[in-house]
Design a protein around this nucleic acid. Structure first.
Lengths: 138, 138
DNA sequence: GCTGAATTTGCAAATTTGTCGCAATTTAAT
DNA sequence: ATTAAATTGCGACAAATTTGCAAATTCAGC
């Protein structure tokens, strides 16, 4: 079922697929980028606060989630392996987050520019901020 | 002297150039991106923790510094006005931060892609992570 | 399916991070 | 120099994150 990929990543990392980890993974699947605060609140009654933190740390180390900077505090979301590669546009007026339209050429160019000085890029994060279509009108 | 630009920005914002603000500005000039934790520690004995936070908040509001997501926690650095527009490459092995080589075409393309869906971009942040030239060899 | 070793969890306490009110000090403009 | 306004430092807080440890869960091998 839908924990197969998760399970194999955990096993490869020497960790096991536990009840709390399933719950947190599901919370990540069903919601977009979310803050720790929100994730902890959503997991409340099922998973202890400390376990949420420990799990996210583990998930990040194994490349299951990543943290990104949207607005002031960081948020967590599933990595490309689960949600597809994408970037974000953050509306500084209404606070909503949108996906940046796909553009393979842009992706390539980012890695190319980075490689110019001998760096070996393994990934990147891009956040555009400004006004969304709606807020631009007002 | 070298506080001229800083002073005029502060004055334009209705704030004054004080001793603590000079100290913090200098700490930003001499170091690259740094975490609040480190900045607070470096300013210790000269500037109170609360003042560091208040100052960074002011500096951010006036566009003197910005915060960015490198590694785990956010970091602070001087804005483009002081350090020129640039992005970062973060080496996940040694933890060092490098500037991404300038590339005007990349900058343009980012805004263009964002504008595609009606978004009005006003800025962006890009972070590439991977291995630096040095760590690639090992 | 059961069993033991190893991992993981929940709980409570500690630490860290960021904020706030207010009296004392510093700044800037006369 | 003088003074009003802005700013600082100093607790004291509130919120976020981490840690130690005993109890519970997972998993591999029977």
């Amino acid at each position: 079922m839908h924990y197969d990929t998760l399970k194999s990543i955990l096993k490869a990392g020497g960790a096991s697929l536990t009840q709390p980890r399933k719950i947190i993974f599901d919370l990540m699947l069903n919601q977009g980028p979310q803050s720790m605060q929100v994730l902890v609140r959503r997991a409340k009654d099922k998973v202890d606060r400390a376990t949420v933190y420990r799990t996210i740390e583990l998930f990040e180390r194994l490349g299951i989630v990543r943290r990104l900077n949207i607005g002031w505090k960081y948020k967590i979301e599933l990595t490309d392996a689960f949600s597809g590669h994408h970037h974000h546009m953050y509306c500084t007026n209404c606070g909503r987050v949108f996906d940046l339209p796909d553009n393979p050429m842009l992706e390539t160019m980012i890695d190319t520019v980075a490689a110019k000085s001998g760096f070996s890029p393994r990934g990147h994060q891009l956040e555009v901020y400004g006004l969304c279509a709606n807020c631009s009108k007002a």
